[in-house]
Write a protein that binds this DNA or RNA. Structure first.
Lengths: 144, 144
DNA sequence: TTGCACGTGCAACAGTGTAGCTTGTTGGGC
DNA sequence: GCCCAACAAGCTACACTGTTGCACGTGCAA
């Protein structure tokens, strides 16, 4: 039976990435997260002493390899979330809606909710789409 | 017949904002822009010597008054665009799709394209929605 | 005209992310 | 198991975006 560590090793090698302690830690943090994390949030969850610059470079190479995707936010902070299993460097399949809770500030990837299509004026050619909802999440609803 | 300057004065007073040179300039720049601008882009178009901090404070108060709205981007930069005429501090009506051209980097407000609704899992309560498309705009299409 | 709340301008600073360089490590080939 | 080239890590320094606190100036209503 493969352990969690085995899965990390396999995921990295499947995407053509080297096995290093930092990469394993970053991947672990993102895989364990229930919602999208910002650079500094990821940093806080890494082993003490992990280099900030290395983290950003790791995130960049993960993104280019299709391991994680950016989640846009209504603020100026970029967040990251682990991609679904079928993503690769060639094709990102993050065609799902994101939901930001205005109370707990968490951003959820609603993998089960696809982004609806829109009809654009002629000659606008669409490559990718982001749909961000804001509101109150399940956990933060006032008790009935 | 009201001049452009008259319109600026009226727009400011209608939103309960004072008439100052900086505010008129910022409003002018945003009203003239065909697409969303970042803080530094606005700064470049202002009269030389305009204070950067004052600009950010001006943008903040414009946003709170419903004169402009934030446009999310897939990068970490916040951009601003003039709101449609019927917006106010009480109700923003920026319920339209944004389109970012990956070639010229311009972000268009497609006012005529409404954001389609989605069905969310129970107990997620939606307050606002952002829909950002990326691709190639009208101007950047390869000649046929 | 006057008062004062609000806007401006300045210095300082915080957070996020990048560039360039040197050192350390991984992993393929022998 | 060893070697080595390519890649990753770790450092300093820096750029950009945006904020805070404070003193001063100004729009505007009375």
């Amino acid at each position: 039976m493969p352990t969690a560590a085995d899965r990390l090793v396999r995921t990295l090698s499947q995407h053509g990435l080297r096995q290093t302690p930092v990469r394993r830690s970053v991947l672990q943090v993102l895989a364990d997260a229930a919602f999208a994390l910002s650079g500094s949030e990821i940093e806080q969850q890494l082993p003490a002493g992990t280099d900030r610059i290395t983290l950003y470079r790791t995130l960049k190479s993960f993104e280019e390899s299709g391991l994680i995707h950016r989640v846009i936010d209504s603020t100026d902070v970029v967040r990251y979330a682990a991609c679904s299993i079928e993503c690769s460097a060639k094709a990102h399949f993050d065609n799902h809606v994101h939901f930001k809770c205005t109370i707990c500030q968490h951003i959820y990837c609603l993998n089960q909710v696809a982004i609806p299509a829109v009809t654009l004026p002629a000659q606008f050619q669409v490559v990718s789409r982001d749909y961000l909802l804001a509101g109150v999440c399940r956990e933060c609803q006032p008790a009935v």
